[in-house]
Amino acid sequence: MQHGSREALLASALLEAADTLSDSFDAERYLQRVSDHCVEIVGARAAGIMLIDGGEAVSLAASSRQQDVALDLLAVQHLGGPCLDSYGTGRPVPPVSIGAAHAASRWPDFTQRALRHDIAATFAVPLRRRESLLGALNVFAPALPDHHAPPEEHWSVRLAQVLADAAAVGLQNHRLYAQYRALTGQLQVALSSRVRIEQAKGMLAERWGTGADRAFRTLRQHARRHRLPLEEVVAGVIDGSVDPCGPGD
């Protein structure tokens, strides 16, 4: 892949990774797209993302290319693998030969499964946002990179880390967005309820020629006496279906 082409793909991927402020956001689809971009940009055979909470995988997503292989290689890591290592240290796991790792008994279940899928090499980078670790991005390569740079400075690892960092930011931004939307909805419901209560208080106070506080106490007493939610009594007063006893009764 030409250098300029890779830059264009990376720019497009980062722009897409930032687009998470939507009610229609689908986390699984989002992580699959990040994995797809990683495969295309670094020339991998497949890639996948493991979201981790409390040291255990809570969600898996894999690239469209060889999705079954990637998901299988992520799932087998519950006993150890590149994702858990990267998440545990908060640092990349540099490119490693699957054959060498298997011979050294490193991640025995994972490497045995990788050899079965004809995966030659792998590396992983953490999904992190400042001090927050969300999981790891695992790349499955057709061959071990042969470059002069130290493994941790290899361009494929650095590009994958950029994508993983962007995904972590996108996920956290969506979480904040969802929390904001939920809080806004709760405040709107509370405000609407308050307005309706004030409306019902005013109607009863005018009808009975009494104060608003006395009207509200009567509303509350009626709700308790009949074991009804206050909001239901208020709605009934407004639409005329409920007539609480007046303060003189």
Rank of each mutant, 00 (worst) to 15 (best):
G81I: 02
I41W: 00
Q199C: 11
L31H: 11
R29F: 05
S59E: 05
F216I: 03
Y180G: 02
D249L: 09
D23T: 14
A178F: 02
R225A: 10
R106M: 04
I119C: 03
S5G: 04
S22E: 10
F110C: 02
Q161L: 08
H117W: 06
R128E: 03
C245Y: 08
S105F: 14
L171G: 01
Y177G: 01
Q32H: 04
S5L: 13
I238M: 11
V242F: 13
V237H: 12
A136K: 11
Y177K: 09
T20M: 06
R116T: 10
P108L: 10
C83V: 14
T89P: 00
L79Q: 14
M50L: 09
Q32T: 15
A11Y: 07
A205N: 05
G99S: 11
S241W: 04
G81R: 04
G88I: 00
T111W: 00
L84E: 01
L115R: 13
Q221H: 15
I41D: 15
H226K: 10
G48T: 03
R128H: 06
D109M: 05
A44S: 10
L228M: 10
S22Q: 15
T210F: 01
L15Q: 12
S63I: 08
L73Q: 05
A120Y: 02
L9M: 14
E153G: 08
R106G: 00
A168G: 13
S12H: 13
V93K: 00
S193D: 09
A11T: 14
L191K: 15
L127F: 14
R227F: 06
V93I: 12
V195N: 14
H117M: 07
R158F: 13
R158T: 14
R6M: 06
R175Y: 09
D68V: 11
D165I: 03
T218A: 10
F25Q: 03
T184A: 15
S193T: 10
V93G: 01
A223L: 12
R224Y: 11
L137Y: 02
P126L: 05
A141D: 00
P94A: 04
R217P: 00
H37I: 05
L84S: 03
L127H: 12
E28N: 02
G202S: 09
A57N: 02
W107C: 01
L176D: 03
S22F: 08
A182N: 11
A141W: 01
A212M: 15
A47Y: 07
P145I: 02
R207L: 13
P151H: 09
Q161K: 09
E152W: 12
M1Y: 07
A121Q: 00
Q161R: 14
L60H: 11
E206W: 07
D68R: 13
S105W: 15
P95Q: 01
I197F: 03
M203Y: 06
R45S: 04
A143I: 07
E206T: 12
A124L: 07
F110L: 09
L204T: 07
L219E: 12
R29L: 13
A17E: 04
L115A: 14
T20P: 13
A167W: 08
Q172L: 14
G54Q: 07
A143F: 03
R227T: 06
L219G: 15
R224N: 07
G54E: 11
A215G: 04
A61Y: 01
W208K: 12
